[in-house]
Simulated assay, not measured.
Amino acid sequence: MRAGQRPAERLGGVRRRLTVAEGRPAPDDGGAPRRRLVTGAYGVLGGFTTMVANAGGPVMALYFLASNFSINRFLGTAAWFFLAVNLAKTPFSVSLGLITADSLRLDLVLAPAVVLGALAGRLLARRFDQQLFERLVMSLTVVSAVYLLVW
């Protein structure tokens, strides 16, 4: 880090190098305040829709697509985001009676299927072309959003 350089500036340089290494154009740092506002809005909307209707997937998928995330970055960021949001809403879910001893027993029974699904997803993600992945995510996002609005 150069003298007088702030950590945020250093991270911007890392992001720029990673983006270029992924074969994408480097981001223009001139729009950082606007980008923070948009990112924050997506985060709040994703967290809100997850808490209210467990429906944050479409919102966050659109954000990740707009951010030009690679497949691995898309999947990893989504996993971490929803882990954090779900951990934050756990006390509320318990107090509302949404998480009970019976639901935890069902979770325990279904845990092996989750592990198998994660392993299968990891194998599939390696085989997907970026453009096909983005089209598939966009299509499924539209389908799920329409379903949520109609249901």
Rank of each mutant, 00 (worst) to 15 (best):
D107A: 15
A84W: 07
V146P: 00
L87M: 11
V114Q: 10
P25M: 04
A88L: 12
A79Q: 13
L140Y: 12
A145K: 03
F82H: 06
W80C: 13
R16T: 07
S139Q: 11
E134L: 09
L83C: 12
R127N: 03
L83W: 06
N54R: 14
T100A: 11
R122D: 05
T100G: 08
T39M: 05
R73C: 01
A3R: 14
R34D: 12
L119R: 10
L136Y: 15
L140H: 08
R6Y: 10
L148A: 11
A55H: 04
V142L: 13
L96V: 08
A78W: 09
A78R: 00
L11P: 10
G40P: 00
S93R: 14
L149G: 15
T77A: 06
G23Q: 02
A111T: 13
L45Q: 05
D102R: 11
T100E: 13
V142F: 08
F69N: 00
L37M: 12
N68S: 08
M60C: 06
G31F: 07
L45N: 05
A61Y: 03
G30P: 03
R6F: 10
A32I: 05
V94R: 12
I99K: 06
L96N: 13
L65T: 01
G30S: 10
F81C: 09
M51W: 15
F74V: 00
V52A: 15
P91Y: 13
L140C: 11
F69T: 00
G23V: 03
V20F: 00
R127A: 11
V59I: 14
R135F: 13
A3L: 12
N54L: 13
L148E: 07
S103T: 15
M51P: 03
L140F: 14
G31E: 12
F128I: 04
D107K: 14
V137H: 04
A118W: 13
N72Q: 10
V143A: 10
F74H: 01
G97L: 07
S93F: 02
N68E: 06
V14R: 11
E134C: 12
R2D: 07
